[in-house]
Each structure stands twice: as C-alpha cells, then as structure tokens.
Design a protein around this nucleic acid. Sequence first.
DNA 1: CGTTATCCTGTAAACGTTTACGATACAATC
DNA 2: GATTGTATCGTAAACGTTTACAGGATAACG
Lengths: 330, 330
Amino acid sequence: MTVTIKNVAKLAGVSIATVSRVQNGVGQVSPETKAKVLAAIRQLNYVPNRIGQALQKQRHGALGIVFPDFSGPYYGGVLLGLENQAVTAGYSVLVLATHRRQESARLITELSSRVDGMVIMDRTVSDSTISAIADSGIPIVLLARSAIGDLPSVRSENQIPAIELMTHLTKDHGYRSFAFLGDPQIAYDVTERWRAVNKVAHEQNLARPKLIRCGYRQQDGYQAAQKLLTQGTLPQCLLCANDEVAFGVYQALRENNIRIPDEIAVTGWDDIPTSELISPPLTSVQQPTQQLGDLAAQKLIQIIETENTRLENDVLSSRLVLRNSCGCNH
Amino acid sequence: MTVTIKNVAKLAGVSIATVSRVQNGVGQVSPETKAKVLAAIRQLNYVPNRIGQALQKQRHGALGIVFPDFSGPYYGGVLLGLENQAVTAGYSVLVLATHRRQESARLITELSSRVDGMVIMDRTVSDSTISAIADSGIPIVLLARSAIGDLPSVRSENQIPAIELMTHLTKDHGYRSFAFLGDPQIAYDVTERWRAVNKVAHEQNLARPKLIRCGYRQQDGYQAAQKLLTQGTLPQCLLCANDEVAFGVYQALRENNIRIPDEIAVTGWDDIPTSELISPPLTSVQQPTQQLGDLAAQKLIQIIETENTRLENDVLSSRLVLRNSCGCNH
DNA sequence: CGTTATCCTGTAAACGTTTACGATACAATC
DNA sequence: GATTGTATCGTAAACGTTTACAGGATAACG
C-alpha cells in the first residue's frame, strides 16, 4: 500500500542506495540517473518513512512536552512558543498532559522513547522518574519546576514580583489581612509566590495569610470564594494564583454584592488579555509565556545537537501590572 | 548508552526473542527464565524502543493534529479532548500549527509520515494536499472544515444557532443594521455563520451586513472596532466571530464611551468562561469544544483499528446563550 | 597498451524490534 | 525402547532507511 524506497528503486531501475542518495542530495549521482529517480519519486508520490530514517539515524527528530493539563492561556502560550521553535528547527512536537493520572510515570517514560529530548513542566511527575529518564540519556529541560540535580531549567520570576505586589498592597493600600487562593502543592510557580507572600506578611507582622486550596480554573476560584464567604469575616485582600481564579472570585463576589475594590481587593497572576477588560480591571503580573516555551525549546535543541549539557538555569522576568482591582486608580 | 533488548538478553543469558516474549507477555516462557528476564529488565531500566517496535509492527502508535494556531480556549479545548482520548487508547499525540506558513503543505505531509492517522482542522492547508495524503493511505478526519471528497468529518452546528441568533436580534430586539467581525475566508465555521447571517438579513429585507475582516484574537477585534468607529455611522449590532474578538470590541467601545447594549449590541461565539463574567455579560453560542476533540479522536482511532472507512459526518449541536450584551435582561 | 585516477553505482550491514519457524529436551504413550 | 506430543527457547527474517565499502566503467596519462 504505502510506497517505500524499494518501489522507487525498482521503478527507476536503480538500487535503493542511489534513491537514498538522490533523496538526500549526498554522494555522487549522474544527472541522468538523478532525473530518473526524481521522476520515479514524483510519480509514486514517495515520502521517506520517518521510522526507517529514525531507526537508522538514531534520531527521532521530535521533541516531547509534558503539561499538567492544557487549560488556560498560560499553557497555550507556552505550547505556541515551543512548537514554533521546534518546527523551525525541523522537529515535530509530541504533547502529553498528565492530568494527575496515576500512570503518568509510565506515560512519560514511554514518551521518552520516542523523542530526542523533552520539556517537563511543573509537578507532572515525581523527581525520581525524571531522574531515571535523564540517566537513560535523553536530554531534559525543566519548565516552571523546582530543580532536580543539575538538569537545566527555565522559569519565570516569581519571588520579586510577589514581594513587589505584597509591598504595594500593604504599604500603598494599607491592607493587613490576606487570603491566598490556589494550591502551592501543585505548581512550583505558585509555591514560590506563596512563600514570598508569607515572607512579606511575616516581616510586616501581619497575620499569616489564609490558604484556600483550589485548582486553577475559573470554576475553582468561584468555589473557593464561596467557601471563603461562609467562613465569617473576609480578609481585606484576595491573592489569586492566576487570573482565571480571580475571575471566578469576581463572579462569587458579584453574586454576593460585594464590591471590588471598595469592600475587598483582588489580584491575579499571568495578566491574560481579558484582565485588562474585565470590570474592575484586574491587578496582575505579566509573564512571558511564549518566551518560556521558546527558550525551553531552544535550550533543549541546543543540548540535543551540541551535546552541551552545561547546567544553566534561566529565569525570565515578570512585570507587576497595577489596575483598579487592588484599589489603584487605573 | 541507551539500553536495548540485546543488553537485557545478554545479562539474562537468553536470546532477544525470549526477552521480547517476556516483555509482551506472549508465547511460552518458563517461570524461572521469566524471572531472570524481568530482573534484568528492572536492573537495566529497560524500556523498549518505540521506533524499533513501530518499524516492526508497521504502526507508529501516534496521532497527529493540525491546528491553524493555538490561541484561545477553543483550540485548547479541542486539544484537551483529543489528547485525552488518544492517550487512553494508547496513542501519542503530535501537534502542528500552520500559522499560515508557506511551507504548511510540506510540514503536514512530513507529519503524515510519522503518525497512523491525523486530524486536520480548518483552513490549515489546501484540499489537494489533504487529498494526496489521504490517497497515500493514512486515515484522516476533518475537524471544523469543509468537506473533501468523502473524508469523514466532525464539526459543530453553525447554521442553526446563527439563524436563531439573527432571528432573535431582528425579531425580539428589532435591530436592522449589522456588522460582522471576523474572516470567513480563514475558518470554515465562520464561513457558515457569515452565510447564515446574510441569509436571514436578506430574508428580512435588511441591508447586507458589513464585513469587517479581522483575525480572531482580542487585539484583532479591538483594531477592527476602531476601524469601524472611523467609518461614520455605526450599525445597531456587531456580530463577532468569537468571544475574544467581542472582548476587543468591548475595549474599543469603552474607550469611546459607547455603551453596550444601549447604544450598540454585541454578540460573540464560543461562550468561553469569561463571557458570563464580563460587563455586560456577552451573548454567545456555546460550542462543545472538548467533545469535538473527543469525537475526532475516537473516529480516527476507529478507522485506524478497524479499517472502517465508512463516511460519516458528525455535527455536534451548539446552544445559543442570551445575555445582556444583545439587549436582553440577563 | 598498461597503469592510475575518477566517477558512478550496487551490495550489505546496521539500527531495535517482533514473530514464524525450527530445534531441543523431556514427558507421555504404546 | 520407539514414537509422539508438549513445553521452552533460539535463529533468522522482516520492517525502511542510511552509508561504508567495494566493484566496474571510463578517462587520463605515461
């Protein structure tokens, strides 16, 4: 059914070696045979089988990326950046979302046997699994994840903008009580932010911010806020793990006729496009999502192609964006 | 460096055939040798090379999906559904975004040589390229795309909700002049909606809706609305190709102090989570994005595994969601 | 004409699997 | 003891490619 190099060779009346040479433009081939082979290739619509090539070349020509899941603009941005770089460099992209599946380890290990290198995001799988894969020889770049051994990593800055944000909220607006909506155990970025928030609160002798554990979708934020509303007195400011959670919080507060920022302040993280538009505009922190994917791909490809395993950890800067939801006049 | 079946065989003191048998649990193998082999596998941390398997089995164990790009929750939902089904069925997922690249045809053809089947969305590549790939024998499912030959397809309903929407806007609210923001030449879904809109307008003896060509991101909607604002009298209602475009329109109208829906009505499409939350809440049409991915994957896998090329075209239903932005009291 | 260099092309091995087939050993049956 | 059957395991081919190597033809040179 499918046409192989043999079919082409037979049709052109040459050996498969010659077909391969023509196809790849290597070695010596006379103009006449070259023409014959090209004609045969065209006639049969031959495309080389990537598996055969991969087996021979010991290269898959593919990169893998492991997401915790795909929801939201953050992951979309990362994927976009990564895919773009990969395709430009001639690689295909395999995606895997772990979704907290039990079998994540198996799936990731399996994925590792069909790519030349992989980017692993966040808390998708245990450190030991990653180490095992790295030991087996395939390059790994960690993305928005805590360090493992000396594996290279890419992440965005969390601590500095989190401190900036908290300082702004306490110093400029005078808020003294906080709640944090998110799950520091799931995402590394959130862990860092949660730590920074606590640090500032402690330094300023505030009560420990209340942690409301929730997922990262709008719906999760909605539920978390509702839960918070049943728990008696509200804090002065709600720090949300990302903008979508903040949107859910908006929803719950609106339903309860609680005004932002007059009665309570809300902040997000990621600065997705809608945050500027929503009412009131959401104070957030801009992350270079696409650049994260870009950089991870570049780094990975560099390691694959130059075998340069120099351990570099890149941190991209994030920018605090103040808007009306924290009490500012923007 | 990487450990192959040979290494395992040597360590266990058996032939590679036996290792394969143990690994796959087929054929007869005595308990003792089985134990030896398993010990060796564990000790060396052996995972079978997918390429070797693929070459032998003549199956890649992978599905490809071609997007026009990744922006927005729509594509995220589709990918999520597709990936989930694929992984559950034991397939990996390769993604490719064409981004209107010149070389799309080459990239897609190349992709086709490393998957067992592929899902092709929208206007990502020419019909002839797709036909050529289909002719070469690999199964294809079209997603949200116009029909090609008798290739199976999956899409969501556009015409019915578009007519419903237009009927509502004209009959219930009495709007007589419209503009449509989007690009019917890019997305098939949008083509269908644009046609339906025109049909209703014509039936009701309205002026032909004005087409403002723009992309599908918030920013595109913003620019399109600004352009519209410089063109003299505004229509009574703006029909946006998706919710993100509508968000951009909101932004532009707000900057010009034009109130929605009092001075102008706005509608979107997709009903993304934020649309309920934004002010005013956006009238939109709910599409089952995840289900689209689900179904496409299921269909593709079925074709691959049963060679059943029965030509079915599935149309998932969409639901009109009326909110305040069109003038309703919701 | 003999030697050598150059150009072209074919042969065969290798990549890592799976699996049909055959070989061996041993038990069971007559 | 000869025959047959069964359980186990190894040999080798096959999948589609690339490429080192060798071989043959032709041209160049003495």
